[in-house]
Amino acid sequence: KFNKERVIAIGEIMRLPNLNSLQVVAFINSLRDDPSQSANLLAEAKKLNDAQAP
């Protein structure tokens, strides 16, 4: 279950337009470290993406 959620979360994070490459890598590394947190990490990535919108 967590592996599928992690793959989906990674794909979504990679498509967030307002994150820089270091932020994307940090979120992906966090997902690798704890796949059970996929939903929480994706939500945090989306919040950061929205906050950094031009």
Rank of each mutant, 00 (worst) to 15 (best):
L42T: 06
V24F: 04
L22N: 12
K1E: 15
E44V: 12
L16A: 00
L42F: 03
I28Y: 02
V24C: 10
Q23A: 02
K4T: 13
R32D: 15
N3H: 14
L42P: 00
N3Y: 08
M14K: 11
P35F: 13
D34V: 04
V25A: 10
E5K: 03
N40V: 09
L41S: 03
E12K: 13
N18D: 02
V24S: 03
S30L: 14
S30D: 09
I8N: 04
S38V: 14
V24W: 03
L16G: 01
I10H: 03
K46Y: 09
L19M: 02
G11K: 11
A39F: 13
G11L: 09
L31S: 02
L31A: 03
N40G: 09
A39K: 12
Q37N: 08
K1S: 15
L22P: 06
L22H: 12
A51R: 11
D34F: 09
L19S: 00
V7F: 13
A45C: 02
I13T: 00
P54I: 11
S21G: 09
V24I: 12
I8K: 10
Q52F: 05
A51G: 05
V25Y: 09
A9E: 03
A9F: 14
I28E: 02
I10K: 03
A43C: 13
G11C: 15
I10F: 05
L41G: 01
D34T: 05
D50E: 11
A43P: 01
K1G: 15
N29D: 11
L42Q: 02
A26S: 13
D50K: 06
N29L: 14
R32Y: 14
P17N: 06
L22E: 10
P17V: 06
Q52W: 04
E44R: 11
V24G: 01
N20L: 10
D33N: 09
K46V: 07
A45W: 02
Q37V: 06
N18R: 02
A39E: 09
K47N: 08
N20K: 10
P17A: 08
L19H: 01
M14I: 13
S38Q: 05
V7G: 04
A45M: 03
N29P: 01
Q37G: 10
L41A: 10
I28F: 05
N18V: 00
A53I: 09
V24H: 02
N49P: 01
A51V: 09
I13M: 04
A53H: 09
F2Y: 06
K1V: 07
S21K: 08
V25T: 10
A51P: 01
A43F: 06
